[in-house]
């Protein structure tokens, strides 16, 4: 609104606070109180109505130091998270390639879209009995479940992103005589990156579910099986530490993806796009 266009420059790299500032106490205090309330209600109701072995905050807290140094727990964690990482890696590589092809080639799109949507809509858990027929009750079944659980969210998101590249960008590229492959890397990839990250976020959540479900089903060692075993032997507190770790991993991925978006894609601001 100023008179010279140079003075119209918006402040650089200063994330405008999206909401009216509440101040630290305005955010922190209600959260702390709510957290305390949740913990207290949980503790009180377990003490009042449920058997002693049921997990409650005080005993879970006491179980943490014992559990996190427990070799069995650590091995189980490494097993499960390692499998999730490996499966996600496979899903990301293959899923991105397939997604780019589907997104940029109308023929591939028409050929493959229905398969992708179909497999995506199948609740991943139902293929477990089939996978355990194929791979037996081994960690290969778990890996296959993770890949299946994760890959389609990546394919769907990457192909959406590759398809949604604004036509102006492609025109600029052609005008500056960019080669086809160059265009793919310089324009389609960056434009699809936000979608890709959204896909990873979804995929990681599903991969985690896939890993736990596979361990429940095949009883192979891992965090899921640890939880199952501990709760069957009425050691709910230890089992709950496992749940908390899974939750932390899930939240961690969310936070990490959000951080990546802010750090590496400062130009991508969803609120502006939808406006």
């Amino acid at each position: 609104m100023a008179s010279l266009d140079a003075s119209l420059a918006k402040p650089i790299a200063k994330e405008a606070p999206r909401r009216r500032a509440l101040g630290v106490s305005g955010v922190f205090l209600p959260r702390l109180l709510a957290g305390l309330a949740i913990v207290l209600v949980w503790e009180a109701s377990v003490r009042a109505f449920l058997p002693a072995y049921v997990a409650k905050p005080s005993t879970v807290l006491l179980a943490i130091p014992k559990t996190v140094v427990d070799a069995a727990f650590l091995a189980a964690t490494a097993d499960t998270l390692g499998a999730v990482a490996q499966g996600l890696g496979i899903a990301v590589v293959i899923g991105t390639l397939v997604g780019l092809v589907i997104g940029r080639s109308p023929t591939a799109d028409r050929m493959l879209r229905h398969y992708v949507n179909g497999f995506y809509a199948v609740p991943m858990i139902v293929i477990l009995p089939l996978l355990s027929l194929w791979f037996g009750y081994t960690s290969a079944t778990r890996l296959a479940t993770i890949v299946y659980a994760a890959i389609f969210s990546i394919v769907v998101n990457v192909s959406d992103g590759a398809r949604a590249v604004p036509r102006e960008y492609m025109e600029v590229a052609r005008s500056f005589r960019a080669q086809r492959l160059r265009g793919l890397f310089e324009i389609v990839l960056p434009a699809a990156t936000p979608y890709f990250l959204a896909g990873i976020r979804l995929a990681a959540g599903r991969a985690l579910i896939g890993a736990v479900v596979a361990e429940f089903f095949t009883a192979i060692g891992g965090l899921g099986y640890f939880i199952l075993f501990m709760s069957r032997t009425f050691r709910h507190d230890e089992a709950f530490v496992g749940v908390a770790l899974l939750a932390a991993f899930g939240v961690g991925v969310d936070v990490f993806v959000a951080w990546c978006t802010r750090r590496f894609l400062p130009w991508y601001r969803r609120d502006e796009r939808s406006a």
Binding site: L228, S231, V243, L246, A247, G250, V251
Partner: peptide, 12 residues
């Protein structure tokens, strides 16, 4: 809770 895999609660 949105990010927690709810399957893990099934044993409980």
């Amino acid at each position: 809770l949105y990010a927690t895999p709810m399957v893990a609660l099934i044993p409980f």
